[in-house]
Design a protein around this nucleic acid. Structure first.
Length: 393
DNA sequence: GGGTTGCATGTCGCA
DNA sequence: GCGACATGCAACCCG
């Protein structure tokens, strides 16, 4: 799959310490805000009917919730009229991946695959428009961290492009037997069809091995807000042998519009980065559920975190879940500490990924003997953009 | 009695 | 202070 890196010159550097706080905030917001709107733009521009066009009548009948859902398909992102309008007006890359994790080191391996400067004009500075400030702002822990291998695996050999949407670490209750996966509100509202009734609607999701699941996407009234959940996820979670602390990822196949659910084992994330070793269970079934699919890309994704755990560990995952002595809070702390380590590493790496926004000349500031380049505008972070070609190239 | 469902409540992080 | 989220728990259902 061809890749491009927007406006990234590895040789150029951006002086991170010189970033003003507001610029960093701007920067992240621009990244974050880009995704949902970009997707809507895809739909509007490409006339993408999502998966509805070829979906089961049963599913169609369930999509009574909203006319927009019927038009755009299950995977429609929710966007307010104003947001939609703003997006249409915007100049975005039609196939730009969804929110880029600011310091996601798993993109690291992709970044040197080439630079295609020909697309610079598509997304000015590679940044989504910056209006709708604060809207659709996803917490960093929900930013998807996909490697190119992961993306390729999900999209398979088809011409589909995969759009990372978000990811979520499974809590104890998510991975429990109740079968309810609490969805981050902003993610749910951004990437799932809008629902007006608590009953919600069925949502068809394809897992990483192509198996399709139907979850009930719904919400509960919660104070004056909503709490979005996916119900009926237990079979899927058990099938994937997930447990609390693991991460499920949501992405979307374009142009089909299919929601794709992947996962990442918590225990393999850090270890895999150190080991750089692929493991697969003895029976040929990797822990991500890719059973005997031949040389699956999962099997070679050393850095992706999609690394199989030992088969015994996998088999005992349910028992372990019950016997886990880690409280959810302490587990969360532990995991977030791991993220901090990851963040530190990636920040160093990110130094090489940042470059100043064009048309900005830095002012040199000397602080304690060190020279810093100070920019008024936020840096541009190179990121892998998957682009698809149509019939005419 | 066990499982499921729907809501309430506590905690935490962010503005 | 408020919103989001994790989880507790009571009500309900079903075998």
């Amino acid at each position: 799959m061809p890749y491009e890196v927007d406006r990234l010159n590895a040789g150029e550097r951006f002086s991170a310490p010189s970033l003003e706080k507001r610029n960093l905030e701007d920067f992240s917001e621009r990244l974050i805000n880009g995704s949902p709107r970009n997707h809507l733009w895809d739909i509007v521009e490409n006339g993408n009917a999502g998966i509805i066009g070829d979906e089961q009548p049963q599913l169609l009948s369930s999509l009574r919730e909203d006319i927009s859902a019927q038009q755009f398909g299950i995977a429609i992102p929710y966007a307010s009229p104003s947001e939609s309008k703003g997006q249409i007006e915007g100049s975005v890359n039609p196939v730009q991946p969804a929110p880029l994790p600011l310091f996601a080191k798993r993109f690291h391996g992709t970044l040197h695959k080439g630079v295609d400067s020909s697309v610079d004009g598509q997304t000015r500075n590679g940044r989504p428009r910056i209006d709708a400030r604060g809207k659709s702002q996803l917490l960093p822990r929900y930013w998807p961290r996909f490697t190119d291998e992961e993306l390729q695996q999900i999209s398979g050999n088809s011409n589909s492009v995969i759009k990372p949407l978000f990811e979520k670490m499974l809590s104890a209750s998510d991975a429990g037997r109740i079968g309810r996966l609490v969805l981050p509100k902003k993610c749910a509202e951004a990437y799932f069809p809008p629902i007006s009734q608590p009953e919600g609607l069925p949502l068809r999701v394809q897992d990483s091995k192509g198996k399709e699941w139907i979850f009930q996407f719904r919400f509960w009234p919660n104070n004056n807000s909503r709490m979005y959940v996916l119900e009926g996820v237990t079979p899927c979670i058990q099938n994937m042998q997930l447990q609390a602390g693991d991460t499920v990822t949501f992405s979307r196949l374009e142009p089909e519009g299919k929601l794709v659910m992947g996962f990442r084992k918590a225990s393999s994330t850090s270890q895999s980065d150190q080991d750089n070793e692929t493991s697969q269970t003895g029976d040929g079934v990797s822990a991500n559920g890719d059973a005997d699919l031949g040389p699956s890309p999962w099997s070679k994704v050393d850095k992706s975190g999609y690394i199989a755990k030992e088969v015994l560990e996998a088999k005992s995952s349910i028992k372990k879940r019950k016997s886990s002595t880690l409280g959810s809070k302490s587990k969360r702390l532990r995991i977030e500490n791991e993220d901090m380590i990851e963040l530190k590493l990636t920040w160093e790496e990110a130094q090489g990924l940042l470059r100043p926004a064009p048309d900005h000349v830095p002012s040199i500031v000397v602080i304690e003997g060190f020279e810093f380049e100070e920019y008024e505008d936020a840096p541009v972070l190179g990121k892998p953009t998957i682009f698809a070609m149509d019939d005419v190239g």
